[in-house]
C-alpha cells in the first residue's frame, strides 16, 4: 500500500463524511442528487460482495463496511428522514441512460464471464459515471453550496490519487488493471471542469455559481 492509495481512500472517506455532516447539521439535503447517491450505493453493493467470500485485510474489510454503511445512511437521509428538503425537481437525470450502457459494457469488456466478476466490472464502470446526476443537478440550478463543493472536490481527488497509485504500482510491482485504470481516467476527467471552478472560485471564498 502506497501513500497515494492511503490518501485516496482517506479522501473518499472524507467526502462521504462531509456529505453526511452537511445533512446532519443543516437538517437538509438540498442541492444533493439522490440519484447519484443511489448509484454510489449500487457501486459499493456490487463491488463489495467479496466481503462474503474473501478476507483481504482488516483495513480492507473495515473500509468496505464503513463505505457501505455511510452510503445507505445517506440514502436514508435523502429519501427518508430529510425527504421534505430533497430537491427532486432539479434531480432529473435519466438513470437508464447510464445504467443500460454500463450493464452492456460490463458484459462486453470484463476479465471473466462469471457473476461476481461481472458485478465487479459493472461497479467500476458505474462509479466512473455515478456523479453525472449530481453535476447535472448543479448545471440545472446553476449553483452549489460551498459544503457540497468540498464534497465533490474530495470525491474527485480520491480517483485522481488512485491514478497516481496505479502509476506507482505499475512501476514498483508491474501490477496493472486496465478496466480500473481506464474507468478511473474517465471518472477523473468528469471532475476536471469542476476542479477548475473549485480552485478559481471556491478556494477564493466565492460561492460556486455558473454563468
Amino acid at each position: 500500500m502506497n501513500v497515494f492509495r492511503i490518501l485516496g481512500d482517506l479522501s473518499h472517506l472524507l467526502a462521504i463524511l462531509i456529505l453526511l455532516a452537511k445533512m446532519w447539521r443543516s437538517k437538509s439535503c438540498a442541492g444533493i442528487s439522490g440519484k447519484s447517491q443511489v448509484l454510489f450505493a449500487l457501486v459499493f453493493s456490487t463491488r463489495y460482495l467479496d466481503l462474503f467470500f474473501v478476507f483481504i485485510s482488516l483495513y480492507n474489510l473495515v473500509m468496505k463496511v464503513i463505505y457501505l454503511l455511510c452510503s445507505y445512511i445517506t440514502i436514508y437521509m435523502i429519501y427518508g428522514k430529510l425527504r421534505k428538503t430533497y430537491d427532486r425537481e432539479n434531480d432529473t437525470f435519466r438513470l437508464e441512460f447510464l445504467l443500460i450502457p454500463v450493464i452492456g459494457l460490463s458484459f462486453l469488456e470484463n476479465y471473466d464471464f462469471i457473476p461476481t466478476e461481472l458485478l465487479w466490472t459493472f461497479s467500476i464502470y458505474l462509479e466512473a459515471v455515478a456523479i453525472l446526476p449530481q453535476l447535472f443537478m448543479i448545471s440545472n440550478t446553476g449553483e452549489a453550496e460551498t459544503i457540497t463543493t468540498h464534497y465533490l472536490f474530495f470525491l474527485g481527488l480520491y480517483r485522481a490519487l488512485y491514478l497516481a497509485n496505479w502509476i506507482w504500482r505499475y512501476h514498483t510491482e508491474k501490477f496493472y488493471d486496465q478496466i480500473a485504470i481506464i474507468s478511473g481516467v474517465v471518472q477523473t476527467i468528469f471532475y476536471c471542469d469542476f476542479f477548475y471552478l473549485y480552485i478559481t472560485k471556491v478556494l477564493k471564498g466565492k460561492k460556486l455559481s455558473l454563468p
Binding site: 467479496d50 483481504i56 485485510s57 468496505k64 476479465y111 471473466d112 466478476e117 488512485y162 488493471d177
Partner: peptide, 10 residues
C-alpha cells in the same frame, strides 16, 4: 486467475 479475482483496492 487469483490475481484477477482478489481485488485489494477499494
Amino acid at each position: 486467475e487469483d490475481e484477477k479475482t482478489i481485488k485489494d483496492e477499494l
